[in-house]
Design a protein around this nucleic acid. Structure first.
Lengths: 221, 221
DNA sequence: CGATGTATGCTTACGACGTACGGGAGTATA
DNA sequence: TATACTCCCGTACGTCGTAAGCATACATCG
């Protein structure tokens, strides 16, 4: 009857909608019905574009990787580009904080070529430093682990020790909830747990790793 | 009627059962009904010992932390004890690999005193090196992030680049699944992605971080 | 001793989830 | 026009978390 030409559905549109829901409403809000509603369709229609929910989540992981902006041409010394890459990876993770939980709960490795491009870029940068393949893999894992874990602790706040947050930096009150005398170091460190600057901390660890790497492998800028 | 004295249920027994299920059958197998069955009870009975499922998962997180073995007395220099602590933390995470996903998906900080004891221990070790509270928090976050992230990549295998595993180190076959010429660095690094030694890699990054820390803070062994 | 309150367990029921199955409408090819 | 294929919807089943109410056992007190 109506000539309404409905916008064609596609895997990309489905994944994109799921990404938006995950970012705005959290990981557990990503249900087939919710995603379907987002694209104006019934739940079962999604199955023409994704095999099942697991496949959709795989697509989500791959989609996030494509947010990594690989510089097209860059004349700076490799070390500067490597640092930039590390920051870019952190930026991507922070802009989709829930994807870390997604990474954590699925044990399958990535296979999508576009999703692997950032890894390719990272390896190429590391090898420019003079590292051989073995060392590159080693440093890639160390570096990737550091960034992933740091952002995870940064956004997850699991070790922020109690109900400590910016608008309630009342360290004494928090300390009072601990049995007296227990946890003296945490008590002493409370103010800094509340107010520390994540950017500075991230840079601190990054420095340690890069500096150590520079002394281990040769080949300057 | 029957004099059957059923073993008393408790929060500890419930959490312990949930931990066993998570370790043996995965995180998504931890359902109220499944846990109840494990302790020989109906699902709703669990609610007398945990507020809701979220509370049960909180208990799981706290329970895992108590697996961290804090040495009672140790005369070795602080650095050796700190390295031991890092390895112990990795051991705990690896022995309950699914808890990382749990940590990742819940944003609430820990409040249980026993769960905070490993953190207390870590801070005390770091401060022994001469670091002040601010620096200790900084290094704690960097170190904690590194270990968490490394174990996450180690157990999750998200960047193992394809269906690469121990019993199929056929690098050439994997490389063939990539569009020709794309991803040359990954292709070159494939053998090492498959066969690298995680223990050695972990140690490598640990070295970098500790060495960097040692040069930054004073106070030797 | 019996009464009573509290802790512990079971049963039933509801709405939301993933998805198997089958039907129907739109478009392309013969 | 007939046929096939793609895309979408409706219905239904089993599982999830948990609200509500009822049954039982035990501790406390007269």
């Amino acid at each position: 009857m109506t000539v309404k030409t409905r916008e064609k559905l596609s895997r990309e549109r489905v994944v994109e909608a799921a990404l938006g829901i995950m970012d705005r409403e959290g990981l557990e809000a990503v249900t087939m019905r919710r995603v379907a509603r987002e694209v104006g369709v019934e739940a079962m229609s999604l199955y023409h574009h994704v095999a099942d929910k697991d496949d959709l989540l795989d697509g989500l992981c791959a989609r996030v990787m494509t947010d990594f902006r690989i510089p097209s041409r860059d004349d700076r010394p490799w070390m500067e580009r490597a640092r930039h890459g590390a920051h870019e990876w952190r930026r991507v993770l922070k802009s989709h904080p829930n994807v870390i939980a997604l990474f954590a709960e699925r044990s399958k490795p990535m296979t999508d070529v576009n999703a692997l491009r950032p890894m390719e870029y990272a390896l190429s940068l590391i090898m420019e430093s003079g590292a051989d393949e073995r060392e590159a893999v080693q440093f890639f894992n160390v570096m990737g682990g550091y960034i992933m874990g740091f952002v995870m602790m940064e956004t997850g706040q699991m070790f922020t020790a109690g109900a400590l947050d910016a608008q309630r930096p009342d360290a004494a009150a928090i300390a009072a909830t601990f049995p007296a005398g227990q946890l003296p170091c945490i008590t002493a460190a409370l103010p800094y747990l509340a107010t520390c600057d994540p950017d500075e901390q991230f840079e601190f660890g990054l420095d340690l790793l890069f500096r150590g790497m520079q002394t281990r492998f040769s080949a300057g800028p």
